[in-house]
Amino acid sequence: MSVLRVRDLTVSFGRRHLVAVDQVSLDIEPGQRLGLVGASGSGKTVLASTIIGLLPDNAHVDGSVTFDGQELTTLPDREFSAIRGKDLTMVFQEPMTALDPTMRVGRQAAELVALHSESSQGTTRQLVVDVFDRVGLDQASRIVDAYPHELSGGQRQRVIIAMALINRPSLVICDEPTTALDATVQAKVLRLLDEELASVDAACLFISHDLGLVASLCSDVAVIHAGRIVERGRTEQVFHHPSHPYTAGLVATASIDKVRPGERLPVIEDFFDPSTVDSAPPSESTNRPHRRIRRSR
């Protein structure tokens, strides 16, 4: 059985129903890693927020999201809280804002354990130290008592990953987990994520606009454009033999090292005319305007 099953999911915002995610369907099997790639504003983050139940109040959701057989879109907050942080967790993009600046990082991690289990305080501390140690934080017993601002960006992101894995979840959603990091730190954090996901046997939805990262971590990939999944398949297949022109454009723009230095880089518009998608027949159930949400990032 799939860990995650998304069917005909449409998410729109506000009174004008601006569509951000448009009839998306996808499955993730236990232990599977699915990359989700697309440009800024394509709906990647909205899709993730929908799955983990963190959409703002002005969002309208149609369709279904089931996690371990349980429908999430209609799940009351209280029951959702029992799943979120335990079986379904998330690694956020910005390690600075995802942590509470007024709370020691060890306590933040311990809170997650305490919320979802009966374990006593003494054993919790040891568990947190162990997990911090496992994600490669040197002197973990000291770092648990540190405040977020005392840690570097890479250390903070390791803390976030530790928190996402501490309850041995079955699905981790990673939203651009390494974009805020340096290239060398990024490579280390990615390797860590790879090992730790494997060690707890968690499935992963890995959101990124960096195709190279997705290629190195994910077995499967889905390409999202203007809120729709335009292509999905095995990573090598999709990146080496893209069937949709948008994917072809994305792959070409990402392969800077394939172009002779100084020559013109290919752009997506060489492969794909965005107007062709917008003029595609709209879904029969709606007659509201299909517009991409302009997000300021």
């Binding site: 990615l190 960096d210 990262l213 290629a215 090598e236 990402a254």
Partner: peptide, 25 residues
């Protein structure tokens, strides 16, 4: 650039070059 990227003399430069995630799996 070509010289440094193809024949880096410093271990650190090599590390930087290897840290670039590539599409070729």
């Amino acid at each position: 650039t070509g010289e440094v990227m193809d024949h880096p003399r410093q271990a650190y430069t090599k590390e930087l070059i290897n840290a670039v995630a590539r599409l070729d799996v």
